[in-house]
Structures are given as structure tokens and as C-alpha cells.
Design a protein around this nucleic acid. Structure first.
Lengths: 137, 137
DNA sequence: CAGTATCCCCCCAGATACTG
DNA sequence: CAGTATCTGGGGGGATACTG
């Protein structure tokens, strides 16, 4: 009998006297990665590129303000997670292309669902923020 | 004639000689907030609470490892964005309850869509990471 | 062209102490 | 009980210079 975590909305938790206690778990880490400064922009670019594929310079030129260093780190992390693959062509000068994997592409609908909620609700969020900040000072 | 941003997947961009250039925009900021260390855990707790409503101590006791300071900051930010409301009862000792707003509750399906994708794909992500790290050293 | 390699700064989160 | 106030360390991210 293998012990199985109890789940609420798919999230593991333990029972306590004062109710369920969630344990920090996977979704946070992945969401935090995707929510970082550049990852969504890289994914968006690849999402609309033909063949879900772009070279390094195209990403760099296409994303306003990103530095070479941060783009490198961002695509490395995405590659590490298996969301994209790196194609290296040993020419001179070298050429590198990044392409969404099947898993990377499978993430797009969920991402789109989330971002569309944000876009729909952004006006109200902005309004609420303004009112909140107004009330503070 | 009001100029309207061109959009790809709802995201504003500008045309350049080398293709579309996305501008950093709203979804990143909101996604970054939601993806931070504690926000999803707070939202999850309220999501399953009766009346989508819990008091400060219940959240604190229910979320393993969160400090008083970080819980305060997290609920403040959520309140500022209009995703929850703070109910203050001037008793002694004081009592404070946090409740999801209609907008806050409306976010749950999108969030669930995303986290379920993560849970489904987590095994492969973990496997890919392990293989990647293996290949590095 | 597509990266490393450094340096550095700022800010976030944790720890701790105090309060209405 | 539900917060603030303050200090501190570590890490993320920018700037810059160098390289196969």
C-alpha cells in the first residue's frame, strides 16, 4: 500500500486541527519560472513563428530590452525544462535556432487561457490598483 | 481614427524589418505576481474555503513556511489588484478575514487550466531536467 | 553570430523585535 | 490577533568586455 497524498484541486496537502495545510509544490516553481521577466515573451515569439522556430538573433531583436545574457539564460532554462530544443549549426558565423518541443507547444493553450483572462480583466485590475493607491497616500 | 495596436495572440507588438517585436506588457506583470512564492498558495486556500473566505491566522497556519510578513505583503498585493477583499473587525483581539472577490473567483478556472497542465507534464519536465543536468557535469 | 566571464547594484525575502 | 519596523544576506538582472 503506497501512501498517496490527499489532493485539493490537484494540490497535495496535509490535514491539521485547523484545516488543510498546502505544501509548497510543483506548480509554484513552474509558474514562477514562466512568470519571470522574459520567459513568456520568448514563448510568445516562438508561438507565432513559422515552425515554432527562431534563431537567437531573431529573438534578441524581437524582444525589446532583453540583454544577450538574459536571453541566453532564459532559453537555457526553457531547454532544461524540455519546452524548447536548441539547434546548433557549426558554420561561420555560427547559427543557432530554437524550436518549441511538442510539450512546449502543448503548453500554449493553457498559457493563452491564462493570458486572455488577464487581458479581459486588466482594466478592472488597473482601476482597482489606482483606487487603492489613491486611498493610501 | 484612434490608432490601435496590432496584436498577436492578444499581445501588442510593433513591426520591424526583422519581424514582429513584442513589447513587454501586462500579462508578464500579473503572471509574475501570481507566480511568486506565496500567491498561488493563498489563492488555492481561499478557493477551497467555505465562502472563499478565511482569516489571517487560518491562512498563516495553513501555508507551511510562510512568515507573517510575507503573508501580509501577499494579501496586500492581492487586495490591491482587486482579487480579494479584506474584512476588518475591530474587536479585541482583532479579527481579519480575507475573501475572494468575484474577479478573484473568476480567475480560478484559468489558473486551474494552467496548473493542471503543469501537473500533467511535470513528470516529463523533471525527467528532462535530470537528463539535462546529467549531461552538464 | 552566439555566446561566456566578470563586476556590481538593488531589491526581495527571511529573521527578529515591537505594538494597537 | 494581526499586524508594522528594522536589519541583513543572497540572488536576479543589467552593463560591459572578451571569444570560438
Amino acid at each position: 500500500m503506497i501512501p498517496v497524498d490527499k489532493l485539493i484541486h490537484g494540490r497535495p496537502y496535509e490535514e491539521t486541527n485547523e484545516g488543510p495545510r498546502f505544501r509548497p509544490c510543483v506548480p509554484n516553481g513552474v509558474l514562477a519560472r514562466l512568470g519571470d521577466k522574459w520567459t513568456i515573451l520568448v514563448m510568445s515569439h516562438l508561438a507565432v513563428a513559422s515552425g515554432h522556430r527562431l534563431r537567437f538573433s531573431a529573438l534578441k531583436n524581437g524582444i525589446e530590452g532583453i540583454t544577450q545574457r538574459m536571453l541566453t539564460l532564459t532559453v537555457r532554462n526553457l531547454e532544461r525544462d524540455g519546452l524548447l530544443v536548441r539547434h546548433y549549426f557549426p558554420e561561420v558565423p555560427p547559427r543557432v535556432e530554437y524550436e518549441l518541443t511538442e510539450m512546449g507547444a502543448s503548453m500554449l493553450p493553457a498559457l493563452e487561457g491564462f493570458t486572455s483572462w488577464i487581458r479581459e480583466n486588466w482594466p478592472e485590475i488597473a482601476k482597482t490598483r489606482a483606487a487603492y493607491d489613491e486611498a493610501q497616500q
